[in-house]
Simulated scan of single mutants.
Amino acid sequence: MELLTVYETAKLLKLSTNRVYALIKQGVLPSVRVGGSIRVVREDLEQFLKGDRKYDTE
């Protein structure tokens, strides 16, 4: 399981880190907490990019 930082996730998505934090807060992009840091599991990011509806808040 590969964990990505918010910064790494933002670079991959070509978004700002603030936008990634907003997606996480909205529950659109799944994340995990490691200590005091937020991480995104690469496999979850790939599912998000494929449009897997289980991550959609609508």
Rank of each mutant, 00 (worst) to 15 (best):
V32P: 00
T17H: 05
K14V: 14
V41R: 13
T9R: 04
D56C: 12
G35N: 05
D56N: 11
N18H: 06
R42I: 03
A22F: 05
M1E: 11
E46D: 15
Q26L: 09
E8N: 03
S31N: 06
E8D: 13
Q26S: 07
P30G: 08
M1F: 08
L4C: 03
E58N: 14
K14G: 11
E46H: 13
D44R: 07
P30E: 07
E46N: 09
S37D: 08
R42P: 03
L49E: 05
D52C: 14
L3H: 15
Y21K: 11
G35A: 10
N18L: 14
R19Y: 10
L13P: 02
Y7E: 14
Y7L: 15
G35W: 05
E46I: 08
S16E: 06
L12Q: 08
G27Y: 01
D44K: 10
R19K: 09
K54M: 12
R53H: 02
G51T: 00
L45Y: 07
R53A: 10
R53C: 02
T17W: 04
D56M: 15
S16P: 07
V41Q: 00
S37P: 02
L45M: 08
V6Q: 01
Y7K: 12
E2A: 11
S16Y: 02
G36R: 05
S37M: 09
P30L: 08
E43C: 02
E8A: 05
L13W: 01
G36T: 04
D44P: 04
T17L: 12
L45A: 10
L15V: 08
Q47D: 12
K11M: 12
T57H: 07
T5N: 02
Y7T: 12
T57N: 05
K25L: 13
A10V: 10
L23I: 07
K14Y: 14
T5K: 09
V32C: 02
V28W: 08
E8Y: 05
L12G: 00
